[in-house]
């Protein structure tokens, strides 16, 4: 088999993943695009390992071993990533990464003075009413969680 076939397919899949990471807004869709990029790298590793095992008499099979390691690391990554996305969804009520702007420049410190901030804790803060206590404890809980 010509080596260009798997290499070109791998490049195309990787660029598809790049487009997904850049263009998607939902955090889980971004994670799916990251999975596509990891799979493109896996295909490259397997193809070059099969080539080198014959062409260069390479018996270490580093490509396939690294593919297995990449698959395991991808599984760990998707687990941690989904746990983070679920925690953000519980705190903010959204998994939209365009709305997570607490560390952005030019928006001021995250607090009740921020015009973006009443949107961020989601719906439960809206009927909060007279006291500004609820957003404060919400952000305090998030900070405690972020530092923990």
């Amino acid at each position: 088999m010509h080596l260009a076939y798997p290499a070109v397919l791998s490049a195309l899949l990787f660029c598809t993943g790049v487009y997904g990471v850049l263009a998607r807004r939902n955090a889980i869709l971004v994670l799916m695009s990251v999975e596509l990029m990891l799979n493109a790298v896996n295909l490259n590793l397997v193809a070059f390992d099969v080539w080198l095992s014959r062409a260069a008499e390479e018996t270490l099979h580093s490509g396939q071993a690294l593919t297995l390691f990449t698959i395991a690391i991808a599984a760990a990554e998707i687990g941690i990533g989904l746990a983070i996305v679920l925690a953000v969804h519980r705190n903010r009520g959204t998994s939209d990464i365009d709305k997570l702007r607490d560390t952005a420049e030019g928006h001021g410190p995250d607090g009740p003075a921020d015009p973006d901030d009443p949107d961020d804790p989601g719906d439960p803060a809206v009927p909060g009413g007279p006291d500004t206590d609820t957003p404060a404890t919400g952000t305090a809980a998030e900070k405690a969680e972020a530092t923990a």
Binding site: L86, A87, R90, N91, G122, P124, T134, A141, E142, E145
Partner: peptide
Amino acid sequence: KAQPAATPA
């Protein structure tokens, strides 16, 4: 960790 923070919501 998200469990006690989820109780206000």
